[in-house]
């Protein structure tokens, strides 16, 4: 017996796929913005913040980087309600993504901050710039320029990792795939098409991020 692949069976479900695709894109964009905000705050706290804050941020970063995303997601979605924080599956998915990317970007941005030459800080200080001004105009600008490629590839890794949010019934692209295969039983076809959609998303995201990089950091 040979199996005949039937991709036409997917056509009636195009709107389900589109819905999932949009969810995944929005999830990625929001968690990128949130994650970089958390990462910037975390990195600034580790390098310029008070001493007592450093071990707390370090613990956050290490815990997130050394546990699987799916466990973090389950902890937020199933574990937190037991502690009194109840979240919808969509809210839990967004929160887990921001927390996850936040930890990775803290570490990436910190590396960028530490690569800023000390002389620049001294120069800025001698110009009587305030701490916030130094951070904004001297440190972060240079740091981001240096670590932009690393940050961009982390965003893509997180986007691909977001497939897991389907497990708490957040309606992303993978959820759409699961739904369709439960209806038409064409599991292989569905997952192949969706895998290729993710591949296209990754390629598109890479191009978009490169474009954004060129606009923000034009080669002088």
């Amino acid at each position: 017996m040979t199996y005949k692949l039937q991709f036409a069976e997917l056509l009636p479900y195009w709107d389900v796929l589109l819905h999932g695709l949009i969810f995944t894109i929005v999830l990625t964009i929001v968690s990128t913005i949130g994650g970089i905000a958390v990462g910037t705050a975390g990195a600034a706290a580790r390098t310029f913040g008070p001493k007592w804050l450093d071990p707390i941020v370090a613990a956050y970063v290490e815990i997130i980087r050394n546990t699987p995303f799916i466990v973090q997601l389950f902890f937020i979605f199933f574990g937190l309600p037991a502690a009194g924080v109840k979240l919808s599956e969509t809210a839990a998915a967004f929160l887990a993504m921001v927390v996850n990317l936040g930890a990775y970007s803290t570490e990436i941005i910190r590396a960028g901050i530490e690569a800023v030459p000390k002389g620049h800080l001294e120069a800025a200080e001698s110009l009587a710039m305030t701490r916030m001004q130094i951070l904004r105009h001297v440190v972060l600008k240079q740091a981001f320029q240096k670590i932009y490629p690393a940050l961009a590839s982390q965003i893509i890794i997180v986007m691909l990792g977001s497939a897991v949010v389907s497990q708490i019934s957040a309606e992303d692209l993978t959820y759409a795939a699961n739904y369709i295969q439960s209806r038409n039983f064409r599991a292989f076809e569905v997952y192949l098409v969706v895998a290729l959609l993710y591949l296209l998303l990754a390629i598109a995201a890479r191009a978009v991020l490169r474009g954004i990089g060129r606009v923000i950091f034009p080669k002088a």
Binding site: L160, A163, V164, S166, Q181, Y191, A195, Y198, L199, A202
Partner: peptide
């Protein structure tokens, strides 16, 4: 460029 989860499904099915 594809999620590990998709790869698992593809091999499983």
């Amino acid at each position: 460029g594809t999620p590990l989860l998709m790869q698992l499904f593809l091999f499983f099915f």
